[in-house]
């Protein structure tokens, strides 16, 4: 198993390298640059800036410079936020996004699987219909609708919770953004769990367990739910990576200082280093979480072995 993990981590290096390369050239193909303003700068100033940021060098030299710095853990200075390096921005923003994402992920996992399993066990009753109906609604309403509605209702009209802001990560400030992030995931996980549980309950080995007089609790928990968790675990990999690297919508609407905003802001402002940094962070998260999922999967399902 250790060998497998090492091999996977090694094989992640070329993956990330390819992503970095593609992102590097794609963002530069986009017309415009980080210092293009509505009123063009004086060409002399422009030249100075370009020299300061190495933008005057040929593209391949810039690329090699970037790779060299990256190998030393330096993501470069941000082009649009003077005085901040990309690393500085992540150092303050990433913990915020991770805290928010981790809470949303835990909430979605617990509530989603519980609702899904409940619906499966009460298939074709009103409980089932309620769960499926709510889940469908949760999937169809986009977060940019949920977020302002929650903020308006609980923050402005009822005044129970802050309508926005981070408040240093106090719980009151977390409730609404976590809910916004978690709701669609709860819906998806509930549906996944429901389907997988129904299938597991119909499987031959569950029939065997029932035929041998095992108590319903053992049949459901030991033999049906563990099998039903397999597709949920697969889904969690990319989802966890997406949630933990922050959400543009939630962070913008609730005014949260995470890193989700940087991706869009960086791309719009042609902040080359910021975009590259965000891409790298997301890529690394995806690689890591897919690995975690594969390890979890092997632990859950003995038929999967990687050695």
């Amino acid at each position: 198993m250790v060998g497998y993990v090492l091999r996977r981590l090694l094989s992640a290096i070329p993956t990330v390298f390819i992503i970095v390369t593609l992102a590097f050239f794609m963002i530069r193909i986009a017309p415009g640059g980080p210092f293009d303003l509505e009123r063009p700068l004086d060409p002399l100033i422009m030249e100075n800036i370009n020299r300061a940021y190495n933008l005057d060098k040929p593209l391949w030299q810039q690329y090699l410079l970037y790779l060299g710095n990256l190998a030393q853990g330096d993501l470069g200075p941000s082009f649009t936020r003077r005085d901040f390096s990309v690393m500085d921005l992540f150092r303050t923003g990433l913990p915020v996004s991770i805290q928010l994402g981790a809470m949303a992920l835990s909430l979605a996992l617990i509530v989603g699987t519980a609702l899904g399993a409940l619906a499966a066990l009460r298939q074709n009753t009103w409980i089932d219909y309620m769960v499926v109906g709510t889940a469908t609604l949760g999937i169809t309403i986009p977060p940019f609708v949920i977020a302002p509605v929650l903020s308006l209702f609980f923050g402005v009209m009822l005044g129970w919770l802050p309508a926005g802001g981070w408040g240093g990560g106090q719980f009151r400030y977390l409730v609404l953004p976590v809910a916004t992030l978690a709701l669609p995931q709860i819906a998806i996980i509930a549906r996944l769990t429901r389907g997988a549980t129904i299938e597991a309950l119909r499987s031959n080995h569950v029939r065997t367990a029932r035929a041998y007089g095992l108590p319903t609790r053992v049949v459901v928990v030991t033999h049906a739910l563990r099998a039903a968790m397999l597709p949920v675990v697969s889904y969690l990999g990319p989802t966890a990576a997406a949630l933990l690297t922050g959400s543009v919508v939630v962070e913008t609407i609730f005014g949260i200082p995470g890193i989700g905003r940087y991706f869009v802001q960086g791309a719009l402002g042609r902040d080359y280093t910021l975009v590259m940094g965000t891409v790298i962070v997301i890529a690394v998260f995806v690689v890591i979480f897919n690995l975690i999922v594969d390890i979890l999967y092997a632990w859950l399902d003995p038929r999967v072995r990687y050695d």
Binding site: N204, T208, Y212, R226, P302
Partner: peptide, 26 residues
């Protein structure tokens, strides 16, 4: 089910047509 569980698996047992899937793979 509860009452039946005292009989099935103890007094009356069963083997099935599908040996490949009748045991829990996990």
């Amino acid at each position: 089910d509860r009452a039946l569980n005292r009989i099935r698996g103890e007094k009356i047992t069963m083997i099935f047509q599908e040996p490949m899937t009748s045991l829990d793979p996990l």
